[in-house]
């Protein structure tokens, strides 16, 4: 069974402690459905009492700190001895290519988190995965770092082709890990989890994260970006209107986004027809070429997409 842990709330201690935004973020994170949600001690205190959820994990600095949280079922702790306490997952930092520190245990049977391997994609990463599974014989939570932009692919390969079953990620990739939303969507599209579940609240989560970190979500960011379902080029609009999956990897509403047809220099006749219908503008088929020419001319003049009003003016001027 594949398990995903989200560690976003153990990566935000350096950000301003905006409790209302973080509480709402946590509520939505629970609805996202990770198998575990990890919090730092700071967040644990700031956000308590926590919403009902069975999979909380507390990140602690030292193994002995676990004694201060007697009712907490699971902990993760950097360099804690693997297998010494079944409630504590020992976290080990690996090198870029999976090199384990000399002090790391061999053939240990306890639960372990392995963090790193940011560069493994450039090598035989499946071989690296096999060696790690040989070395650490208990459950392995793999937390790839995103230093080279490979983290989502590494998490996906670990879970789907690499013999692993547990991955750790963070929403938006905060802290430098695989973005949770990307890992979840990969697994969903592969039919491996969350069939039927949608994430209409992702835009709100992105907005809350932006409020907390101050870092804007790029408009083209996978799964979260506001513009990723905007479509302009003639060939793409034509395809999407005939069947959205021609040019959409998943329905926009799955991630709380909307398809929007833009009119501009790359538009084609299908875009013009669609926009005329969307705006309820009566037209004759013979007018379409002139309207399209007007759209391209206007787009060139303003160096961008047209507004609906600009389009309606062109359509009105071209009506015969």
């Amino acid at each position: 069974m594949i398990r995903v842990t989200d560690r976003t709330l153990s990566c935000l201690d350096a950000a301003p402690a905006k409790a209302p935004a973080l509480r709402r973020f946590l509520e939505l994170l629970v609805r996202t459905g990770p198998d575990a949600i990890e919090l730092s001690e700071g967040m644990w205190g700031l956000l308590g009492p926590l919403p009902d959820y069975p999979g909380y994990v507390l990140r602690i600095e030292r193994a002995e700190d676990a004694a201060r949280y007697p009712r907490t079922p699971r902990f993760v702790c950097r360099d804690a001895p693997v297998g010494a306490d079944p409630k504590i997952t020992g976290e080990i930092l690996l090198g870029d290519m999976g090199e384990a520190p000399a002090a790391a245990p061999r053939r240990a049977f306890g639960r372990v988190r392995l963090q790193g391997l940011g560069g493994a994609m450039t090598g035989d990463y499946l071989g690296i995965f096999a060696r790690l599974r040989e070395r650490f014989r208990g459950p392995i939570e793999f937390c790839p770092t995103d230093r080279r932009g490979f983290a989502t692919a590494l998490a996906a390969e670990w879970l789907i082709n690499g013999g692993g079953s547990e991955a750790v990620a963070s929403f938006g990739g905060v802290g430098g890990f695989a973005p949770t939303e990307e890992v979840i969507m990969v697994l969903k599209l592969a039919g491996l989890r969350d069939a039927g579940r949608t994430y209409g609240f992702f835009p709100e989560m992105a907005s809350l994260l932006q409020e907390v970190t101050g870092d804007p979500v790029p408009p083209g960011k996978p799964v979260l970006g506001k513009r990723i379902f905007h479509v302009e080029s003639g060939i793409h609009v034509d395809g999407v209107l005939k069947r959205p999956e021609c040019y959409e990897p998943f329905p926009p509403e799955t991630a709380g986004l909307e398809r929007k047809i833009l009119l501009g220099g790359q538009s084609g006749a299908a875009s013009v027809r669609a926009k005329l219908e969307e705006l309820g503008i009566k037209h004759r088929a013979a007018d379409i070429p002139a309207i399209l020419e007007g759209v391209k001319k206007k787009s060139g003049e303003k160096k961008g997409a047209l507004t609906n009003r600009e389009f309606a003016e062109i359509a009105g001027a071209c009506a015969t």
Partner: peptide, 12 residues
């Protein structure tokens, strides 16, 4: 890059 894997897939 719809699922954030364009660079990784290109390297592969």
């Amino acid at each position: 890059n719809d699922l954030g894997m364009a660079v990784a897939n290109t390297v592969e």
